[in-house]
Amino acid sequence: MDLDYEDVDDYNYTYSDIYQDLHPSVNFSASLNRNQSHTEDPFKIFIIVLLAVIFLLGVCGNGLVIWMTGFKMKRTVNTTWFLSLAIADFIFCVFIPFSIVHAAYDFHWHFGLVMCKLTSFIMFLNMFVSIFLLTLISIDRCVSVIFPVWSQNYRTPRMASVVVLAAWVASALLSTPSLVFRDIYSTDEKTTCYNNYRLASDQSHQSAAERHKAVSLTRFICSFVIPFIVIVICYSIIVAKVRNNRMAKSSKPFRIMAGIIVAFFICWLPYHVFIIMEISHHQHNKQVLHYGMPIVYMLASANSFLNPILYVFMGKDFQQKFRLSVLSRMENALGEDVQTSRRFSRTNSTYDKVSTHI
């Protein structure tokens, strides 16, 4: 429960957090923490190692995608989507070293109030941008199937850029609770970065709990429930249309997007489940929350390096891709929509032309 530290005697735990809103640290006394420090070391080391791996893979993978889609490939609607996804993941990965240092120093926050707020803001910005873009891609491809003529005339990189900008603005607005409620609390032993849902003008427990619940449910609805419903509807329409008209000439773009979407929900659904559980933490086992939160944070962070891997290795058969260079594989995986569109546009009907965008 994200509560002010004045309330620690009334609650069993509160956010601490390397895990940027995800890790509830058990609020034992200082002496008990010292007694448990030895037994918690392996878990802390596991967190540090995993964060370091995610950082390296995420920065390298997304940096490569940014370089390819931003500088080496022709600007298209699809490369605009992929570039924006990679930028969001790259920015998130750049901030992971703050969490690594935080864990290495026994979760003592060294970086002040501004970075306490900013690291949390960046994580949720990445979450919202990623799911909004996946939703927009689903809508884009559904529209291409239902309205092929309109899509051929108006589906342009410039329009995609405007939509991407709108998604970033909306994501930033939905991430502002981190800038408002994130706070630091210092004792003689350590400084903690945590959520303080209390306002100076209102010190009641009930109001803070209501704000916490409102923020958590808003994130869950806006970043999971609504996008999930939209994506399922869009891809159901696409699959039905493809089967009825036998439109698809290549399943690769569909497989790539399906993989990205599945990876996103596998990585982020456990986080939302634990956050909903945390709202009513008194009804759940504290150890499950204590050790489960950092694990779901690892899953959520892993999504930032999974997307580039999906771009590369889902484009064609793995053996064929293995024989190609990394750059050739990535360009082929991300650019096939454009290549197949050109190839089939010379020989097939209007429906066949737009089918390559699916």
Rank of each mutant, 00 (worst) to 15 (best):
L85V: 10
V77D: 05
G58F: 08
V77L: 10
Y105W: 12
Y19Q: 03
F98M: 10
L50R: 05
I47R: 11
I48A: 14
Y105R: 14
I100H: 03
T14S: 07
L22S: 13
N27W: 08
F71N: 07
S25R: 07
I48D: 06
A88N: 05
L32Y: 04
D21E: 00
L57T: 03
S31A: 08
D7R: 15
F28P: 00
G61D: 00
L51S: 07
R34P: 00
E40I: 15
A103Y: 12
N62C: 08
F82G: 01
F90W: 12
G70K: 09
D7I: 00
I47T: 12
E40D: 11
I87N: 01
D41K: 15
F55L: 10
M68S: 12
F55D: 01
N33V: 01
D21S: 11
D106S: 12
L56H: 01
N27G: 00
L57P: 02
L83H: 11
L50C: 15
T76I: 11
T14Y: 10
C93F: 03
I66Y: 05
R75D: 13
I45R: 10
Q20H: 07
D17M: 04
F43S: 10
H23E: 04
K74W: 07
D21C: 05
A30E: 14
H38Y: 09
H23G: 07
A86F: 01
L51W: 11
T69M: 01
F28W: 04
S84P: 03
A104V: 08
W81S: 07
T79E: 09
L56S: 09
A88W: 04
S84M: 07
L22A: 10
M68K: 06
V49C: 14
F43M: 11
S25L: 10
S16N: 08
A103C: 13
F46V: 05
I47N: 13
P24Q: 00
N62S: 08
D10Y: 11
S99A: 15
H23R: 08
Y105G: 03
Y11L: 01
P42C: 03
S25Q: 12
L64S: 02
Q20V: 11
D7M: 10
A104S: 15
K72L: 09
H23T: 12
Y13P: 00
T69P: 02
W67Q: 04
Y15F: 13
I47E: 14
F90Q: 02
L56F: 14
S29T: 13
I18P: 12
L50N: 15
T39K: 13
Y15V: 00
S99Q: 14
V8C: 06
Y105I: 10
H23I: 02
F28Q: 01
S84I: 05
Q36C: 02
V49N: 06
G61Y: 02
D10I: 03
I91G: 01
F95K: 01
D89G: 13
S84W: 04
N12K: 09
L85W: 05
P97C: 09
T69E: 01
A52M: 14
F43D: 02
A30P: 01
R34E: 13
R34L: 09
H23Y: 13
V26Q: 06
I54V: 09
